[in-house]
Structure formats: structure tokens, C-alpha cells
Design a protein around this nucleic acid. Structure first.
Length: 648
RNA sequence: GGCUCUAUAGCUUAGUGGCAAAGCGCCUGCCUUGUAAGCAGGAGAUCUCGGGUUCGAUCCCCGAUGGAGCCUCCA
């Protein structure tokens, strides 16, 4: 007999060799019907795998992330089976579960899979699912496994086998499909009741651009039909928040083929929104001791040879601009830091000036690959809310923490509660893409981790994500479709001070080298505003809203009064417009609602007579009559509601 | 940059191997208005561009360009 401990702490005795499914059955049949897999001593297992020792067992269902993963991984196998039946000869690489569903990388040979094939694949999957084929696990000797795939002429699985140890290899079979797989899987294909192929994409074998491109087929499946419908509705709603759609509808930005791809044009409403955000940050930065600087959009190629940018990125960036004189070359600036280094160098610096914090909303240009451009989140010309802090070695951590405070202040003010902090370090394997010596890197990586932990940030560490000159602390936020984007970033840098030979005179009258901290709380205005649009679905907080009020006269008889109210409120720095159109009030309200104007003022006979305004809140409706003064106070209270003060 | 998909009026979309449609928006007129769409009329498109097939191409084929998704990349 063995002891099984359940998550609630209860213990039960079972016969040796029982399965998680048996455990489930001992609790209730209903539960057993929903068990997808089980966590046995921390490892996810098939629910029908025999348990032979005392174990902790957690039954996993659709509600558990690991249960979902099992479900989707099995669905990938089901899709593979369908593909093999429909397109004999296809070869498979890997088919993991992902956040929303699963994919399988396949080599389809001559046949190309397109969206026209989706229906066929889905139908075949469901047909196979209805057969309720069990997933059968079979341990396999490596030599045997190699033999099997040699026979199938499957170079991908053979490649995969190379990295696996003999003794740890298992095969899974369901119906007529057998795959090399470590599992686990759901009991049988019958659990899968709804299937949707979502898209196809090219994916390089092993992510290597020089290798063959496979077809990555994405899909999602559910244990109930209804859940698929719900999921599709959710995706549709997310699309409504897409900043590319809302940006156009709300007149925030546009693109033009003639101007060039990845080069956004900011429309008046968007430009004013940007300005407000800039002013908001400028105010906080002034308090935090930043000094503004301004530098040009281009810089001599020599500047970037010194900084290392030319060597690292020159080939892939916008090519140098040539002057009429021979031999003069300038680059569109890809970063502001080299310019700021030269400002530091403009005269001898004393330790008394440190930390020197130079800030600039600097527009930079980077030649991003065309396939990578995406609305405002990935563009070729963008403005960073950049600053560089030049400080002494012993000031790094303190300064770093102050920057974390500033970033958190910005995020909080704008309602970005759902972010993750990512520490980006060097790749462990490939160090060729970084400049500088190991000792400095270690120091910088340590400083970041210390600062982050002291600020109690919940961080994840990503190797290989560092900038070429130093490690970073990135603040990541998801867009409407669940994609992660880096917004705020803080980077410690020992390299550029070396390259630019930056120096300051210390208290000891000796020369010392400063350390640089690069930082941008927004990241870039473009990306930040894109995410802001998606987070708020275009319903900006009142202080940012392009139009705060819409003044809607009932008829043209009240035009004069409307204009009077408008001017009065404009005097009080409340922005908006009067809807002068010859339309019914219902229409004017509807248009203001659609344009997401937060406050509406309705003026007619009664209001004019009493010198009052009727106020309506977007999405809420009529909130009553105010005098003009009362409304001004009310509006200002609403405006200031969401902006906390920085630094107390 | 690669793979797959895609391109019709300012916007959203319909459509056909033989005069190109609708809704919204815009303009004009009528109506004179009370908390989410008043009525009528009108202007607006070499159907993204360049080739090819065809008697004839917006439609079929090839290429370019823009857009979408993903992969790679990302200072």
C-alpha cells in the first residue's frame, strides 16, 4: 500500500500502482470525468500513469494552467494526426502548448497550408477526437527510437533525439499517430470538443534564419463548444481596442506610404496628448533633479564609431548621410546617449555636480526590419523620454532606486497596474554581441538586482535580453491582444563612459570615471501611447482626454449662451468644443459618446434662463444641473483625481 | 529580411472576365430640435502600382509597394 497526499493535506491509502484517475474516482465520478492530468510530486503526469511510491497528488482540470497545457499539448498531437491523414508525408518538428492554445511546426513538403485548409483540418481533428482514442505512453530505447524515425526519413525528430538521453525517451500514440514526446497527455482525444485553427506562419527551424523555414500552425481547442464561442467573442472585443483602429477613429495618428513605413504622423489630437504626457513627466523630472538638454537629430558617424553603435548595428541601420564635401558622414541618431556623453565632456566636471541627470525627449531613428513594424508599438522614428544619469560608483544603486520610483510613479499615474519587471542580463552562451569587460558587467548586473530587490519588485530574469552595453531593468506591459511590450527601461552602463573617456574630478583631486544610467519611464512616446490607448480602450483619463467637454446646445437659439459657456470654461483651462451643427440633441450626444468625450454640457431654454449647465457623463448619463462656477470646480476635481503628486 | 494572408470612395465593407455598389463621413437644402443616429438631394473610385493571359481584366497569373499574423531581429 502507498500513501497519497492531496493538496488539502488529507491522506489516503491506496494500492501500489494506482493512477491519478483512480484517486479521482475515489473522490467522485464527476471529478474523474474532468481530470486532464495530475501533478505527482511536483511533476505533471498522465492521469493513467501508475504511481508506485508515497506521493503528493494534485488532480489537474481545465481550471489549472497545467491542466490546460496538457489539454493543448494533446490537441497539438491531435492536429498532427489530422495533418498526417490529410497531407501524407508531412514531417513534424515540435508542438508545444502556448498561452492561448498550441502550435505545431511542420514541414509540409510541396503542399502549402493556407487559411483555406483550416476548416478541413478542424473537421478532421473533431472527427478523430470523436473516436476517443487513448494516448498511450511507451518508454523507448534511444537506438530503437532512432531506428523508427530513420525509417520514416524524419530528419527533424532525429535532430531532436540527438539531444535526448537514453532512458528518458518516451513515445505517445493515439489512434494512428505516434510521436516522440515526453508527455503528459489527457486520457483520450474525446475530451476535445471544439477546435479552431487560428493562423499559420513561417518559423525558422530552431529559430535560425539560415535554416529551413517550417510552417507553424496555430490552433486552440476547448472541452466545450461554448468556450470556443466565448473565446472568439473575447478576441473580437480585444480587436476593438487595437490602437491602430482606435488611433485612426480618434484622430490620433496616421501613416502615409509616401512618408514611409514605420514613420508615424501625429494628428493634432495625438500631438496634444503627447504634449500633455511630456509635460507631466517634465514636471516630475524637474522635482527629481533632471536638467533638460536638446541635441540634433543627426550626428557624425565618428560619434557612433566611438560609442560602438556603428560596429554593432551600422550594417543594419539607416545608412550614413553624405555631405557635398568628401569624407563627411552623418548618421540619423539611433540613440541619444552619445550626444549626452559629449555634453558631459563639454567642460571639466566636479564630483560636486554628480549625479548629473541630463534629460531630453529625443527623437531617434532605427531601421527596424519591415516585418517587425507594428502600428505605434514598433516604428522607425520615435521619441524617447530619455535621460542619462552620470554618477559616481557609490551612487549607482541609490540613483537606480530613485529611477525605479519615478517609473512606478508614471505607471501608477496612468493606471498601468498590470506590468511585469524584467531583469535583462547577458546571454550565457553568446557573449560576442556585448562590449566591455566581465568585471563591469558583473558589477552592473549585481547593482540592478540589488536595487530591484530592495524596491520589492517582482522580477523575472531573462538572459540574452541585455543591451549591447549593459544590463537592463525593463517594465513590460501587455497590449490588447496579450503581446508583451517593453515600456519603461533602466540600464546601467560602464561601457560608454570608457569609450568616451568621461571623467570627473573627485574630492581627492584625482580623476575618476563616472557610471551612466540610461532610463526612459515611458520608453518611447509612440509605444507608450499605443499601450495607453489599448489599456483605456480610448477612454483616456480626463486630464489627457483630447476633448474634455462637448458643449451641446439644444438648438441654434442657444448658440450665444453656448459660446459664452465655452469661453468661460476655456479660461479655466478646460478644453473642448461647441457642437454647432444643425442636429437634434440626441444626435449630438451620440456623436460625443462615440468620440469618447468624457463630459457633455447640454444647454437649452432652462439652462439659459437660470444661467446653469446640464451635465452628462459619458457612459453614465445625466448627472444634473450646475452653475458654471460649480461645473468648473467639479471638472477640476475630476481632472486632478488621477494624478498623484510626485515625491510628496 | 523570411513564410502565409491581404489591398474596391476619406472610413467600413459588398460585388462581377463586358456602365463599380452600400452604410458612415463630406457638401446643399428642408426641419428647429431636451439626453445615444430627423428627412431629401448631391459630390466623391484610372477598383494600390507595373507587367502578362484575354477580343476584353477591378476580377485570372507574375512582380513591386502598403497592410495583417507569426518567425528572426531589436541600440
Amino acid at each position: 500500500m502507498i500513501n497519497i497526499t492531496l493538496p488539502d493535506g488529507s491522506k489516503k491509502e491506496f494500492e501500489k500502482g494506482i493512477t491519478a484517475m483512480d484517486v479521482a474516482l475515489s473522490i467522485s465520478e464527476g471529478l474523474a470525468r474532468n481530470v486532464l492530468s495530475a501533478k505527482v510530486n511536483g511533476e505533471v503526469w498522465d492521469s493513467n500513469r501508475p504511481i508506485t511510491t508515497d506521493s503528493e497528488v494534485q488532480l489537474l482540470t481545465w481550471k489549472d494552467t497545467d491542466g490546460k497545457s496538457t489539454f493543448w499539448h494533446s490537441s497539438a498531437h491531435l492536429m498532427a494526426e489530422a495533418l498526417e491523414e490529410l497531407y501524407p508525408g508531412v514531417k513534424f518538428w515540435v508542438g508545444p502548448p502556448v498561452e492561448n492554445g498550441f502550435y505545431y511546426d511542420v514541414d509540409t513538403g510541396e503542399h502549402t497550408i493556407s487559411s483555406n485548409d483550416f476548416k478541413k483540418i478542424e473537421d478532421k481533428m473533431l472527427e478523430l477526437a470523436r473516436q476517443k482514442n487513448e494516448f498511450i505512453r511507451k518508454p523507448m530505447a534511444k537506438s530503437e527510437a532512432i531506428e523508427y524515425f530513420k525509417e520514416k526519413n524524419d530528419e527533424y525528430k532525429l535532430d531532436l533525439l540527438e539531444g535526448l538521453e537514453d532512458g528518458s525517451i518516451t513515445f505517445y500514440t493515439q489512434g494512428n499517430f505516434t510521436d516522440l514526446c515526453r508527455g503528459p497527455h489527457i486520457p483520450n482525444t474525446g475530451f476535445i470538443k471544439a477546435a479552431k485553427i487560428t493562423n499559420v506562419a513561417g518559423a525558422f527551424f530552431k529559430g535560425d534564419q539560415s535554416k529551413k523555414q517550417l510552417t507553424r500552425i496555430y490552433g486552440i481547442t476547448f472541452p466545450k463548444q461554448g468556450e470556443l464561442k466565448e473565446y472568439l467573442t473575447m478576441v473580437e472585443e480585444a480587436k476593438q481596442r487595437d490602437h491602430r483602429k482606435l488611433g485612426q477613429e480618434l484622430d490620433i495618428f496616421t501613416f502615409s506610404d509616401k512618408v514611409g513605413k514605420g514613420l508615424p504622423l501625429w494628428l493634432p489630437k495625438g500631438a496634444m496628448l503627447r504634449e500633455r504626457l511630456e509635460n507631466f513627466l517634465k514636471r516630475a523630472q524637474l522635482k527629481a533633479g533632471y536638467l533638460p538638454v536638446v541635441t540634433p537629430h543627426i550626428g557624425s558617424k565618428k560619434l557612433y564609431e566611438t560609442s560602438g553603435h556603428w560596429e554593432k548595428y551600422g550594417q543594419d541601420s539607416f545608412q550614413p548621410i553624405r555631405t557635398p564635401e568628401e569624407g563627411e558622414e552623418f548618421m540619423l541618431k539611433p540613440m541619444n546617449c552619445p550626444h549626452h556623453c559629449e555634453i558631459f565632456k563639454a567642460r571639466p566636471r566636479s564630483y560636486k555636480e554628480l549625479p548629473l541627470r541630463l534629460a531630453e525627449f529625443g527623437t531617434v531613428y532605427r531601421y527596424e526590419q519591415s516585418g517587425e513594424l507594428h502600428g505605434l508599438t514598433r516604428v522607425r522614428g520615435f521619441t524617447q523620454d530619455d535621460a542619462h544619469i552620470f554618477c559616481a560608483n557609490n551612487q549607482v544603486e541609490e540613483e537606480f532606486k530613485k529611477v525605479i520610483d519615478l517609473v512606478l510613479y508614471v505607471f501608477k499615474s496612468l493606471g498601468f497596474d498590470d506590468f511585469s519587471a524584467q531583469i535583462s542580463l547577458r546571454s550565457k552562451e553568446d557573449r560576442s554581441k556585448y562590449i566591455g569587460n566581465d568585471a563591469d558587467w558583473d558589477k552592473a548586473e549585481e547593482a540592478i538586482q540589488n536595487a530591484a530587490s530592495e524596491k520589492n519588485l517582482d522580477t523575472v530574469i531573462e538572459y540574452g535580453e541585455a543591451a549591447f552595453y549593459g544590463p537592463k531593468l525593463d517594465f513590460m506591459v501587455k497590449d490588447a491582444l496579450g503581446r508583451k511590450w517593453q515600456l519603461g527601461t533602466i540600464q546601467v552602463d560602464y561601457q560608454l563612459p570608457n569609450r568616451f573617456e568621461l571623467e570627473y574630478v573627485g574630492a581627492d583631486n584625482q580623476k575618476h570615471r563616472p557610471v551612466m544610467i540610461h532610463r526612459a519611464p515611458f520608453g518611447s512616446m509612440e509605444r507608450f501611447i499605443a499601450i495607453l490607448i489599448e489599456n483605456t480602450a480610448g477612454n483616456f483619463p480626463l486630464w489627457l482626454s483630447p476633448d474634455q467637454i462637448a458643449i451641446l446646445p439644444i438648438s441654434e437659439k442657444y448658440e450665444d449662451y453656448a459660446n459664452e459657456v465655452y469661453l468661460e470654461l476655456q479660461d479655466q483651462d478646460i478644453r473642448g468644443y461647441v457642437d454647432h451643427r444643425d442636429e437634434k440633441i440626441g444626435r449630438k450626444i451620440r456623436d460625443a459618446e462615440v468620440n469618447k468625450v468624457p463630459l457633455m454640457i447640454i444647454l437649452g431654454e432652462k439652462e439659459q434662463a437660470d444661467r446653469k449647465v446640464s451635465v452628462r457623463k459619458k457612459g453614465e448619463g445625466d448627472i444634473g444641473q450646475f452653475s458654471i462656477e460649480e461645473f468648473g470646480e467639479f471638472a477640476h476635481k475630476e481632472i486632478n483625481k488621477n494624478i498623484p503628486k510626485f515625491g510628496g
